[in-house]
Amino acid sequence: MSTGLIFAGTGAILFAMGVAGVMLLAHLLRRILAFNLMGSGAFLILIGLAQRAGLVDPVPQAMVLTGIVVSVAATALALALTRRLHKLTGAYTLPATRDD
């Protein structure tokens, strides 16, 4: 088992933890953090799987570099919307919806 595969496996575990966090946590700040965890897991999988043979592949590296910047932007957008929600409703959780 190469180092790349260990990275990819760690990424899979992080991604699953992030998925569970997004579904389980009600506080929006925690949910945004869990969402970031999912992103980090996906980046680790991309990088790790690409160099599983020990060779460095520049294409996934460039994609992950782009992805990191976009995830920073998405986090900032989510935080701005959360703050707006807090100003309008005074709550840091989404209003409850009926499951139908």
Binding site: M1, S2, L5, A8, G9, A12, I13, F15, A16, M17, V19, A20, I45, L49, R52, A53, L55, V56, D57, P58, V59
Partner: peptide, 27 residues
Amino acid sequence: FAALFAFVLIVAMLELSALPSPKVNLP
């Protein structure tokens, strides 16, 4: 569900790495 998902993902990646290298060689 999350634990199962991570397990399936890791198994799939291990299987994938056992396959011969893909035809499109990006590096």
